[in-house]
Simulated scan of single mutants.
Amino acid sequence: PTTGRDNWRPFARGTAAHSTLTYHDTSSCQFVEMSAMKRLLRGAPIMSGPHEVESYREVVEGGTLLTTSHDGYLAKFGVIHRRVLMVANDG
């Protein structure tokens, strides 16, 4: 968010603000939200979230294949988020 719009920062940092899966309407990361802690730390650091993040890039016929995953939902829901994207050479 632009300067002076700090109240929108938690929304912008949440999973739902990005082009990705949101599982059970829950962000894959949780942030410090206590005002005193945010002032002391000069922001809202991540309290919990993915530990294992993987990404693989493979050049295949016609483009590039990207395979990514993270375990940000594993502890709470028992699932791993995996995404496979094909980026074609011709756009």
Rank of each mutant, 00 (worst) to 15 (best):
Y56K: 15
R82S: 12
V84Q: 15
G4I: 03
I46R: 14
T22C: 03
D71V: 02
G14Y: 00
Y23W: 14
P45T: 09
V32N: 03
I80R: 13
A75E: 12
G14L: 00
T3C: 02
N89D: 15
G91S: 11
P10F: 04
G14R: 03
A17M: 06
R39H: 07
G72V: 06
D25P: 00
G43Q: 06
R82K: 15
F31K: 03
L66M: 12
D71L: 00
W8M: 07
D71F: 04
Y23P: 00
F77I: 01
N7W: 12
T3N: 06
T20D: 11
A36W: 09
M37E: 11
V84K: 15
K38H: 01
M86V: 05
T68G: 04
G62P: 00
F77K: 07
G78R: 11
T3K: 10
T26Q: 13
I80Y: 07
R83F: 01
L74R: 15
G63T: 07
D6H: 05
R42C: 01
E33G: 01
T15L: 02
V60E: 13
R39D: 12
S55Y: 08
V60H: 10
G4Y: 01
F31N: 08
G4C: 01
T26V: 02
S69Q: 12
F31S: 05
G91W: 08
A75S: 12
T26R: 13
L85N: 11
R82W: 00
L65R: 15
P1S: 15
V53P: 00
D90H: 15
G14P: 00
P1L: 07
H18E: 04
D90C: 01
Y23H: 13
S48R: 14
T15A: 10
A17V: 03
A16K: 05
S55W: 04
I46D: 02
P1Q: 08
Y56F: 05
M37Y: 09
V79N: 02
P45Y: 12
P10H: 07
L40M: 11
G78F: 03
A17C: 04
E54S: 13
E61L: 03
D71Q: 04
M34Y: 09
R83Q: 14
E52W: 02
L65D: 09
K38Q: 14
V79T: 02
C29Y: 13
L41D: 06
E54F: 07
E58R: 12
G62K: 03
G49Q: 05
E54R: 11
F31M: 06
S19V: 04
E54A: 10
D71R: 03
H81T: 06
G72R: 03
F11S: 08
Y56L: 09
R82M: 05
E58D: 07
T68L: 08
E61P: 00
L40P: 00
F11K: 05
L85S: 13
R57V: 08
V60P: 06
L66I: 15
T15E: 10
